[in-house]
Amino acid sequence: MDVFMKGLSKAKEGVVAAAEKTKQGVAEAAGKTKEGVLYVGSKTKEGVVHGVATVAEKTKEQVTNVGGAVVTGVTAVAQKTVEGAGSIAAATGFVKKDQLGKNEEGAPQEGILEDMPVDPDNEAYEMPSEEGYQDYEPEA
């Protein structure tokens, strides 16, 4: 019985440690998101679009440190934060509304985080759909 109880105690310690790591990862992701939003706020009209992409990228980098179902929630929060940063930029006159959601080359930025393969159960990952990809044929 002692062996059984000791095993359960060790398992509990492992769960607590994993929860603490997840909590730490979420806190880091939130900190990076805040950094990115402050970065966007300090940019001029020309830099705002690039700044919004930076927020998304920093958040995406930190999301990889967070495991399990938390990833889905962090990704949703990050996307809403990026959308909010863009709205703030438009409201303050840093950028025109028609410039939001495009990178410096004018290509749409939507789907940055949505296409990231995420499995809350950590069982399997699927690649994003290939609808947006084109076949590449090298020139002879």
Score class of each variant (00 low, 15 high):
V66E: 00
M5Q: 01
V70S: 10
V66I: 08
V55R: 00
A107N: 10
E104D: 07
N103T: 04
G73V: 10
E114Q: 15
D135C: 07
Y136K: 09
F4W: 03
A69H: 13
P128S: 14
E105N: 03
T81C: 08
E104G: 13
E57M: 13
A29F: 06
A124T: 09
Y39C: 07
G47A: 05
K34T: 15
K23Q: 14
P138V: 10
S87E: 07
K45L: 11
A53R: 00
G93T: 05
M5D: 00
P120W: 05
G68W: 08
V26D: 00
Q24K: 15
N122L: 14
K34I: 12
D98C: 05
E139C: 03
G86N: 02
K23P: 00
V74Q: 00
Q62I: 15
V95L: 09
A124G: 15
G14M: 04
K6N: 05
A27N: 04
P108M: 15
V74D: 00
V63T: 03
A19W: 03
H50F: 05
Q62P: 00
K21T: 07
D115I: 09
A76L: 02
M116Y: 09
Q99W: 07
T81W: 13
V3G: 01
P117I: 10
A85M: 13
A140C: 15
K43D: 00
V37M: 11
N103P: 04
K6Q: 01
F94Q: 00
G25T: 10
A19Y: 05
D98G: 10
K23S: 10
I112G: 05
K12H: 09
D135K: 09
A17I: 07
L113S: 05
I88R: 08
A124C: 07
Q109A: 07
E114W: 14
F4I: 14
Y136R: 09
K43R: 05
G101T: 03
N65H: 09
A11K: 02
E114Y: 13
D121E: 06
P138I: 04
V70H: 01
M116T: 08
V40E: 00
E46A: 15
E131Q: 15
G67S: 12
V15F: 12
G106T: 12
A53S: 12
E46C: 06
V52E: 00
G36A: 13
E114R: 12
E20G: 02
A69N: 02
V52R: 14
T75M: 15
G67V: 07
E137H: 09
T54K: 08
D2K: 08
V71T: 01
T81R: 02
V37N: 00
V55H: 00
V37R: 00
V82G: 01
V48L: 06
A107V: 01
T64Y: 06
T44V: 11
G7E: 13
D115K: 11
L100P: 06
E110Y: 08
V63K: 02
I112H: 11
G68D: 11
V52S: 06
L100T: 09
G106E: 08
A78T: 11
A69F: 09
D115T: 12
K45I: 12
D2G: 00
L38H: 07
K6M: 05
Q134Y: 05
L38E: 05
A89P: 04
K10H: 05
A69P: 00
E139A: 15
A78C: 14
L8S: 00
V95K: 00
G14L: 06
V77E: 01
G132W: 02
G31T: 15
